[in-house]
């Protein structure tokens, strides 16, 4: 697997990261180097080996359906939520107008 300048430019644009043409030119060989390095894993024969999803045997823990049981992950903290917003009015975040 390898990438070209067009792919790198597209990924940057999807991720909303501004990169200059010169930076893209430099990034293409770098990224291809990383991809080739990771691709070495493809040389290992994993026939019959179940995919591993975590390094320690662990399953997903679930939470009870209780509102604001833990103040750290509960609501009713509007002031905190809005504290870092560049603009907030009437309890809303204000963002540059986005309308299709």
């Amino acid at each position: 697997m390898s990438v070209d300048t067009a792919t790198v430019a597209k990924i940057a644009s999807l991720a909303r990261i501004r990169v200059s043409d010169a930076e893209i030119e430099a990034m293409v060989p770098e990224l291809n180097g990383i991809l080739a390095w990771v691709e070495q894993l493809g040389e290992v024969d994993v026939t019959g080996v179940e995919p591993m999803t975590a390094v320690i045997p662990n399953t997903l823990r679930l939470r009870d359906d209780v509102v604001n049981a833990d103040p750290l992950t509960g609501g009713d903290i509007r002031d905190k939520v809005l504290a870092n917003a560049p603009a907030a009015e009437h309890g809303f975040f204000g963002v540059p107008k986005v309308i299709e």
Binding site: T73, G75, D76
Partner: peptide
């Protein structure tokens, strides 16, 4: 009320 039911998550 707007943003009243919002956690840090």
């Amino acid at each position: 009320e707007p943003n009243a039911q919002v956690s840090l998550v």
